[in-house]
Design a protein around this nucleic acid. Sequence first.
DNA 1: GGTGCCAGTCGAAGCGTTTCACCAATCGCC
DNA 2: GGCGATTGGTGAAACGCTTCGACTGGCACC
Lengths: 348, 348
Amino acid sequence: MASIHEVAKAAGVSISTVSYALSGKRSIGADTRRRIDAAVAELGYRANAGARMLAGSRTNILALTAPLHEDTYHPAHMRFVMAVANAARARDYDTLLLVQDDATAGLERVTSSALADGVVVLDVDMHDERIERLRSLGARSVFVGIPADTTGLRCVDLDFEAAAALAVDRLVDAGRRSIGLVGHPERLYGRGSNFPLRFRRGFAEAVERRAVLHAEVFPEETQAAARSAVATLVDGLPELDGLVLNCNEPMARAILADLAARGIDVPGAVSVVAGGANYSTRDFAPPLDVIPLIAEESCERAVELLVEAIEHGDAGERVELVAPRYVTRGSVVAYAASEPGPRRGARV
Amino acid sequence: MASIHEVAKAAGVSISTVSYALSGKRSIGADTRRRIDAAVAELGYRANAGARMLAGSRTNILALTAPLHEDTYHPAHMRFVMAVANAARARDYDTLLLVQDDATAGLERVTSSALADGVVVLDVDMHDERIERLRSLGARSVFVGIPADTTGLRCVDLDFEAAAALAVDRLVDAGRRSIGLVGHPERLYGRGSNFPLRFRRGFAEAVERRAVLHAEVFPEETQAAARSAVATLVDGLPELDGLVLNCNEPMARAILADLAARGIDVPGAVSVVAGGANYSTRDFAPPLDVIPLIAEESCERAVELLVEAIEHGDAGERVELVAPRYVTRGSVVAYAASEPGPRRGARV
DNA sequence: GGTGCCAGTCGAAGCGTTTCACCAATCGCC
DNA sequence: GGCGATTGGTGAAACGCTTCGACTGGCACC
C-alpha cells in the first residue's frame, strides 16, 4: 500500500535513492541506508509489482507449462511442478501455472503480454506443439525433457540412455547374462513422450555391447498385463537372471509380486534394477537397486539455465544430460561361487 | 511488443479509443471497431501486463497456496491444483503457485506487492497459520477446506459430515446393522487436517442416530496395518456387515484385498462404501459405491466466490458446503430374502 | 427551434517504478 | 594545490496502460 514516495519522504531522501538502495545497483551511504531500511520496515513497504514490471521490463515470473496427458503419472508430475516452483523461488522468481489446453495457448498470452520472463516446459513430447509456438514467439524457454529436434532449444533431462546402460552394466558385472526389460506401455513410445524411448535405446545398445541375451516387454498398466509380461520374459528367455525396470511404481510392484508368486528369488535367481524411477524403491520387497529420476535435479538445473539466459541474455541452444546415479539396495548380487549356473538352480 | 500507441496509429484513432474498444467499457462505432480489430490482429497486439496492472490496479492473477505436508496424498493434491488453475483460467485469471515454505511467506509478497488479486488456500489445517497471515494482510481469499474458526473467512468444501451420514444411511437402509469405519492414520486427526475429522464426526452421529453397532479403525498406510485393521473390525464387531471407507486409494485396495483373502464376500457379507474419495473406484474388485470428493466442484465454486469478491467487492464471511452425491456401483446390497442373517452365513 | 440526452471520440492525468544524466563533495596522487 | 576519479545523492524522463472529464454531432421531444 505504501509507495516508494512515502518511503522516500519518511527517510528524507529522494525516490531514486530509495530505489537504488533497494536494488543495490549503486552504493549508498551507511546513514542513508539505515534511514531507508527503517522507513521500509516501518511502513511495510513492498514495491508494486506492476510498476516494477513496467519500468524494469522484467517481471520475475516464470511460466510453467505442464499439460496433463491421459497417461501422465500424477505423483511424478506433481514432483516436477513443485520442484520447478521451488527452484524458481530460490532465485527470486514466481511461477505461473499453465495447465491443460492453456498449456499451449497460454504461452502466447503470458509471453507477448510480457507477464513472464521465461517459460519452463514440462512433459515434453518428441514433436511437441509448444516448441513451434515458443520459437515463433521468440520466448526464452527451457525444456525438461528432450524433443526430437533440439535446434535452438535449451533442454535438460536425465541421461536415460546412460541410465539404461548403467543398469545393464551393473547386472552384467554381477555375472547376469540374460536380461529382461520391462518398459512402459507400447503406445507411449508411439506418442513420443521421449524418455521411455531413450531408455529403450540405451538398453538395446548396452545389451548389444555387452553381448548378453535379452528380451523386452511393454505391458499396459494392469495386474494382468504384469503377469503376462513376466510370463513372456520367462518363456522367451529361459535363462533370465537379470531384470531392468523402466515403468511406473504400480507396475514395478506388480512385477515383483508376480516374481515372488512364481517362486523366483530376487535377487538370487533374478537380480533387478529400477531405472529412471521417480518413486522410492526403499519399501519394496525386496528394496530395489535404483537409478533414480530426481525431479529436483533436472528442474533446478533447468531453472538455473533459464534464469541465466534471462538475466545475462545468454543465447541459444544447449542440451544438458544429467548423469545417472546408481543407488544400491541389495537387489543385484553376483552368483554365489558355489553356484555357477544361472537361475535354474535357485528356482527349484 | 507492439504497444497500444501503434495500434491507435494504425487504426487512425486515439489511444483511449483503443483501450475502450478492447475493454468494452464504452460503446464504439462499428466502423471504428472494425479498424481497431484489424490493427490488433495485424500487429498481434497484446496489452502489456505490467502497464495494465499499474494503471488498472488489477492483475488478473490468483495466488494458489498449496503446501505439501508429509502426509499429503500427491495425486489428490495435484487434482486440486489443476482444478484451481482451470477454474481461474475460465474466468480469465492466471494462477501463481506458492509452494512449500513459500506457501505462507509468499502470501505477503504477492499480496502487498499487488501481484495477485486474491488467494486460493488449499490443504487447510484446523488452525492454519495462513489464516492469520491473510487476515492481517487484509487479502481477499477463499479456503478450500474448513478451518476451526471461520469468522470472516470464505470457505468451500465437500460436506464431509453429510457424506459420512449418507454412507451410513445407505448401508442401514440396505439392512446393514454393524458398520465399520476405516479412517485415516490417527496422527492426521491430531494435526488438524480437518476433513477426516468431519467425516469421523458425521459417521459417529449417523450410527448413533440410526442406532446400529459400529467400530472405527485408523490404520497407518501399510499393508500390514490394513490387515490388522480388518482384524480389529471383525473381532470387535462380530456381526460386521457394512463398511465405510474414508481413506486413501492404496489403503482402500488393501482393505478389499484382505476381505477377499479372508473369504468375506463383498457386497453379500459385507457391503462397502467409499466416502469422500478422491480416486475412482470403478476398477476396484468389486467396484465400490462411492461418495466422491470432486476437486473440480469445490475448486470451481471457490474460484467463483473469490472472483466475485474481487470484481464486485463482495465482503466477507461465507461457508459453503458442497452436498455429497452418492454413486452406485453395486458394492451395497440388501440381504437376500432367503438369507435374513448377517455375514456368518455368507462367510462359510 | 430550443433543450436535453446519448453515442462516440479524444486529450491528458495519473499509476509507481527504474534508470539516465547530472551535480557536489571528497579523496588520492603527483 | 590542482586534477581526475570515485562516492553518494538528485530530478525527471520514460514504461504502456486505464479512466476521467470534456467535446461534438445527431436525435427525440415538447
